[in-house]
Design a protein around this nucleic acid. Structure first.
Length: 225
DNA sequence: GACCAGGCACATC
DNA sequence: GATGTGCATGGT
């Protein structure tokens, strides 16, 4: 995949975002397991709604794999209702938990010996876990050096013309990973900053006036997508 | 009321 | 292989 920007440009974007927004402190969550639950619940959903669902789970003492495993679907669905798509997300959460307990005894530590690309394939094998959710789990819950792509990333790439063509998930991921040092903390902060950019400026109806990326050399603000 | 939010699987052509 | 659709709550 051919990017029209240089390695230093990709790092320049990071610098601009970091200067503008500062550290984002991702992922919000107190444990790897909570981060995984959040990653599933936040699919196509506002994070504020996810927080309500996670609070409900915490109040019900369900923020651990075995408790969710034993929890009836109806009760689980009711607790995560604020996160939207609660029926499908109940299935997805259960699918993950079943796999996690079956293969790893519900122990996060048991992931440690598994190669990242193998683990990624295994996660993708769970119905309801796609590329972004798998990568979010790998990066934010398990500290693996995997760059997370989301709708904001794709939108930014189009708006700011990072690539000449092909903006599918894998291409975008390769673009960032091949132009950056393999650094978990960098990947963590970079994706979080892109989401912040998306929320503040790179929206479906763009607000480009004060976008920190206006300083980019190739920038064409407000077009695309 | 319309639009949007830190996707994904599945149906259909 | 590409494109369309269902899933759902809550804030702006």
């Amino acid at each position: 995949m051919k990017g029209i920007m240089s390695k230093t440009d990709v790092e320049k974007i990071y610098d601009l975002l970091y200067e503008h927004f500062g550290p984002q402190g991702w992922w919000p969550g107190d444990s790897p397991f909570e981060i995984i639950v959040g990653a599933i619940l936040t699919q196509n959903t506002n994070w504020d709604n996810v927080k309500k669902a996670i609070n409900n789970l915490e109040q019900a003492q369900l923020l651990n794999p075995h408790s969710i495993h034993k929890c009836p679907r109806e009760k689980l669905a009711e607790l995560i209702r604020p996160a939207g798509y609660f029926n499908i997300k109940t299935k997805r959460l259960k699918n993950f938990i079943d796999w996690f307990i079956e293969n790893y005894q519900g122990q996060i530590e048991n992931f440690e010996t598994v190669n990242t690309s193998i683990l990624r394939e295994e996660l993708l094998g769970v119905n309801g876990i796609g590329a972004e959710t798998a990568d979010s789990i790998l990066l934010y819950a398990l500290n693996r050096p995997v760059f997370v792509i989301d709708t904001y990333t794709a939108r930014m790439a189009v708006r700011h013309q990072l690539l000449e063509y092909e903006i599918d998930y894998h291409t975008l991921q390769e673009f960032f990973q091949s132009n950056l040092p393999e650094d978990v903390q960098l990947f963590n902060e970079y994706h979080a900053l892109i989401v912040r950019l998306g929320k503040d400026y790179c929206k479906p109806k763009p607000k480009c006036e004060k976008c920190p990326l206006n300083e980019l050399p190739h920038q064409i603000a407000g077009f695309g997508n």
